[in-house]
Design a protein around this nucleic acid. Structure first.
Lengths: 103, 103
DNA sequence: TAAAGCGGTTTATATTATAAACCAAATTAT
DNA sequence: ATAATTTGGTTTATAATATAAACCGCTTTA
């Protein structure tokens, strides 16, 4: 039992949430995705998804645009540069916890 | 926007917690570690650490042994097989979210 | 022997996640 | 036409969780 003082780097609490992380994981791989699609991919309830999208949006990690698809409303989501950076850093930080080598 | 239905696998809520994950991360790499060491490595308060160790212990992910170091009490923690398995599965599951290839 | 420190546990509080209840617009059935 | 259902969400209430504060017994030091 040595005294290494590893001191784990704190995990971004905005990303350390199952649903928000799933949302970011989807958005990082596509140009944009709409509410209904994200809901189906994550299996989240509409209410839960709505509040989590708000939080990501308030943090500037995603941007949300309200448009129309025909006559129906359509909520489009896109990841921002800030969101991309935060996600990348979260991944690197988490690797320390998961014992996955950096890179 | 295809219909892939990725359906993210749920993350073990016991491990998806910053402090508990840090504890497991420490314990997976050593034979055993005591309360004071884990506390110093994680920077957690004693109270917080105490309850999180209880939860991990109640889940059978770690075992806790109360011993003495001289006259002082000493709480030793070890990861169990079940804990090791759960941690490994958590890591694999998380890779889906983090876009890290499996393995 | 009083005071301070150590190694924790118990309990109260603040935060967070989540679903239930709700709403407006559009569609479908009568 | 209009009543009933569905769609695409938001707001709000509740349940769960994390976290620290307060506490406790024992030991060491003053």
């Amino acid at each position: 039992m040595e005294e290494k003082q590893k001191t784990f780097k704190p995990l971004d609490p905005l990303l350390h949430s199952e649903l928000r992380l799933a949302v970011m994981s989807i958005l990082i791989g596509v140009v944009e995705a709409d509410f209904v699609y994200i809901k189906s991919q994550t299996g989240a309830t509409a209410g839960n998804l709505s509040v989590q999208l708000d939080k990501l949006s308030a943090a500037g990690y995603i941007e949300v645009e309200k448009t129309f698809k025909g006559k129906k409303t359509c909520t489009l989501c896109r990841i921002t540069g800030k969101g991309r950076d935060a996600f990348a850093e979260y991944v690197e930080t988490l690797k320390q916890y998961l014992q996955i080598p950096k890179g």
